[in-house]
């Protein structure tokens, strides 16, 4: 599904990713953990196609195709989704308007028919209900004045509606209260299927109790320094990153 090969990336001449190798297979949930500043968000941005990063070496393959030359919207249309660590506020654009634009843009690019307004509204209502997203949030300007937790819920709502083949969640758990964490995790779990895969970036083992990963990887100083099963997360929770080039916990 997603394969990262020897990925090197820098920003403003500063090297951030130093040869990342990572393979996430169809149907799999992989977790990435790692100290602050180790390059987790950078990796997700490079995969999603944010401007400003220079990839000096390596490639990122989605279903065998190198996506690094594609524009962000083309990657999205191919089924890539990134739930942002810090979702952006868009004044003047209601959440509904945005959701409809996003869903129909992807459909257009894939040569599918656009959603009718009633179909769209039905889909949104069902997903919002399930994820506990309040109706008034959908009418307000996107993310403007939303609480930290509300923004994260809305990221998952977007993911549920866009039904990506590969979803990256960058610290979607931070800022969520205990109930929201469960609801959001259920939202992710209900999307799990043999032809989808997820990359979950988190600092806390707790999320992984809800979204149980197949593999856990440790990113440190721009490289994957350790990979293991879900028990690796428990070990990290206990010992911190001292064994992996990070500071002692």
């Amino acid at each position: 599904m997603l394969e990262i090969r020897n990925l090197h990336a820098e920003i403003g001449g500063k090297k951030i990713l130093n040869g990342v190798n990572l393979m996430v297979k169809s149907g799999e949930v992989a977790a990435i953990m790692g100290p602050n500043g180790s390059g987790k968000s950078t990796l997700s941005y490079v995969i999603a196609g944010r401007d400003g990063y220079e990839v000096t070496e390596g490639e990122a393959l989605l279903d065998g195709e190198n996506i690094l030359a594609l524009d962000p919207h083309e990657r999205a249309a191919k089924g890539l989704f990134l739930a942002f660590q810090y979702p952006l506020e868009i004044p003047g654009v209601t959440t509904m308007t945005f959701l409809k634009a996003a869903m129909n843009s992807q459909r257009k690019q894939r040569g599918e028919a656009e959603l009718t307004t009633p179909d769209f509204i039905k889909k949104v209502n069902v997903a919002a209900e399930r994820l506990g997203v309040k109706k008034d949030m959908l009418r307000r300007a996107l993310n403007v004045g939303f609480s930290g937790g509300e923004k994260k819920r809305l990221e998952v709502l977007q993911m549920a509606l866009l039904e990506p083949r590969f979803g990256i969640l960058d610290e979607t758990d931070s800022g969520l209260d205990i109930d929201a964490l469960r609801i959001v995790a259920e939202g992710v779990n209900s999307l799990r299927s043999p032809d989808r895969a997820f990359l979950v970036i988190t600092h806390y083992q707790r999320l992984l109790d809800y979204i149980v990963p197949d593999n856990v990887h440790v990113l440190s100083k721009g490289r994957i320094v350790k990979s293991g099963g879900k028990e690796l997360a428990l070990e990290l929770e206990k010992n911190g990153y001292r064994d992996y080039g990070g500071e002692a916990a």
């Binding site: 401007d51 989704f81 942002f84 952006l88 868009i90 634009a101 869903m103 992807q106």
Partner: peptide
């Protein structure tokens, strides 16, 4: 970028 990452 945020909007384009959603497919626009």
């Amino acid at each position: 970028f945020y909007l384009m990452a959603r497919g626009l």
